[in-house]
Design a protein around this nucleic acid. Sequence first.
DNA 1: AGGTATTTGTTCAGCGATTGAATTATTTGC
DNA 2: GCAAATAATTCAATCGCTGAACAAATACCT
Lengths: 412, 412
Amino acid sequence: MSPTHAPAGAARQGSLRELNLALVLGRIAAAERPPSRADLATATGLTRATVSAVVEDLLAGQLVSEADPAPRAGAGRPARGLVLADQGPAGLGLEVNVDYLTVCVVDLAGQVRHRTVHRADLRPVAPADALARLVDLARQARADAARQGLTLAGAALAVPGLVDDAGLVRLAPNLGWRDVAVPELLSRHPPLTEQVPGIPALVVDNEANLAALGELHSRPPGPASFLHISGEVGIGAGIVLDGALFRGVRGWSGEIGHLPVHPEGRPCRCGGQGCLEQYAGQEAIVAGAGLVRAELPADTATARLAELAEAGDPDALRALHDAGTALGVAVAGVVNLLDLDTVVLGGGYAPLAPWLCPPVLAEIAARVLTAAWSPVTVRPSTLGPEAAAVGAAGSVVRRIVARPAGWLNRSG
Amino acid sequence: MSPTHAPAGAARQGSLRELNLALVLGRIAAAERPPSRADLATATGLTRATVSAVVEDLLAGQLVSEADPAPRAGAGRPARGLVLADQGPAGLGLEVNVDYLTVCVVDLAGQVRHRTVHRADLRPVAPADALARLVDLARQARADAARQGLTLAGAALAVPGLVDDAGLVRLAPNLGWRDVAVPELLSRHPPLTEQVPGIPALVVDNEANLAALGELHSRPPGPASFLHISGEVGIGAGIVLDGALFRGVRGWSGEIGHLPVHPEGRPCRCGGQGCLEQYAGQEAIVAGAGLVRAELPADTATARLAELAEAGDPDALRALHDAGTALGVAVAGVVNLLDLDTVVLGGGYAPLAPWLCPPVLAEIAARVLTAAWSPVTVRPSTLGPEAAAVGAAGSVVRRIVARPAGWLNRSG
DNA sequence: AGGTATTTGTTCAGCGATTGAATTATTTGC
DNA sequence: GCAAATAATTCAATCGCTGAACAAATACCT
């Protein structure tokens, strides 16, 4: 969003250090090659003296470590390169979905250091029991992380549904959850993470939102703005603006699945008519291709569809083209409204992207006013189904990098 | 947007003062009643000593002035209240539209201190000549402002079209402009405003965006998030999030007029089909009501429509209902996507709001998933056609309040 | 091989801005 | 008229950044 600096609180002496810690650490995180202290000084505008002092704090707090410098030509004392530490704080990412649980640990550099996927049909399981299983997996993850010298500084949980600011899951239709107070249920277990000022112990968020953040990790570092669309049974979108997730007034943004594409078309379970979900949702595509959805797990149906399309099956190709067109109509509307330059097809759409992208691009070209001046890129997600969990864990480390002072003062 | 503090640059000693100047001035601007220095100290968390020093700078720079304090019961030395100065910096707002030019001056408190509307059909006029006329009006406005003790610190120009970051008007279809380099044309005239660090001499922006900002001034102060829809010949939307305009990656956000509402419907001049503009644009409503648009100025057509509806004319009522429904379909999509809680009908829609609101609300209720938990308000704009110019001038003073250091150090 | 230029990183006095306590100023209530 | 209460200012102490001088480590040149 536009930088109308909203000063959160009083700027005291210590705020200077907090700002500069964040500034320097952010530079280190965004750099292509390990920068030296001198590089950082010129890049940030601080003096080398200040950078040295700041870096000393960061080293002491295990946020960065010294590495082999980038080789440089010419004379002069060799620099010592600085990189994000591979020991120290890490983020815990959790996901509950219809047919699997995922737990992962991501370090400061964005590397996935631990990952567990537990396949099971969670629909018949009570929320409290599902979360208990997740806590078990998370405890193992924490032990594994500790062996690698990592400390879990915070956690985020992805849920396929509407989530409150307070972490209350209002409605997760495909999971069968309604008004589930996740933080309260989890507080019955011993805590999984350290207490770090400024880092919430647990954030609960929509799966599509966190999957979009996951995509951010697979890209070259730096701010980015894109629309990430997760095509599952429902269709969710995560909107990332300048590297930050856009959540809307109450955190319920991204309900792209109910954008009208045929206002007098098929009735939708949301009560409206002709919603995108009815034309580009997984069930619609599968049915359109003449497959019987039966009780196939979602990923199997998608894989089968990709196989058929690969083989040139005309029904599958037509179903994908129709879905892509519907998706394109909706995406064109979003791009017109928000002026984004990149659209990422994720979740179940990723493997189908070769067939979905062309009609989506065609609709964009036809309907987006500004497409002539600035092309819109449509590409598949690079992460698989673990995107949401990785994004969840990444949101924790992103917060640490953005505000390292909290981690450094944690013992106080 | 979410506050992922993006440190812009190095935090030096002086940055502290800059931040606290902004913090204190922001509090004064947002306060209901003139706060005392002591009030500000408790509100901001700064000490009274610091607040006094900061306020001294603000007083010296004519950003605030002392006023009669809010009367208080009990003993003690009476406080001196602080208010935004009614002399000092002000913003210049400009607008070029199809059939009028507007110039206005807004002071720090958001009061409109000068306003000129010059009616003329600008379509046959060359851009350079139209801007020359505008400069004439602005020069008179500056003289009037000077008489009131105001100094113009910056200007913003509203144009009904797509505008570049650099101020290049790529396309203003109804005005007949294409690739007009406004800053260059204006630089041929003597400058209208002081040079103030941090305040651009001239910002050119879309009329719908600035009208949305204008709406912000007519509300009780404080952050707000809403969608402002300007219904003219085209339909533009301004998205305000937490009191800041959302511009998109390139500043071309808000093209709601080409959201598809009937994807296989009427062809649109944008190249797409079934765009909102074809169903809820002014021409569509007027034609639907059986009126001959002829060469009526836009506001006359709207007024006539309102008259007819008032009188119960069935054709007019049906046309408005249909337009409202189409608008509601589009707005429901936007609300689903962005999770906004307020929609403002502005521009030509404002006088028609009594007839447009019900169908818009009906579509929202039917199509927005989260409407059950959080109602969406739809209301007419409180500003008239001058909204864009007021918003333009307001954007200048908003910038000064957000970053007062620039104004204070201007002579240096 | 030795000296010089060059670049990196550290040390230290100086300075600006905030803090916290003490001080002054001004009113209400008894 | 005096004490209590609240507002605002003054001043030494402190914290963090700056700028310049200095130490460290290497490449290049003769």
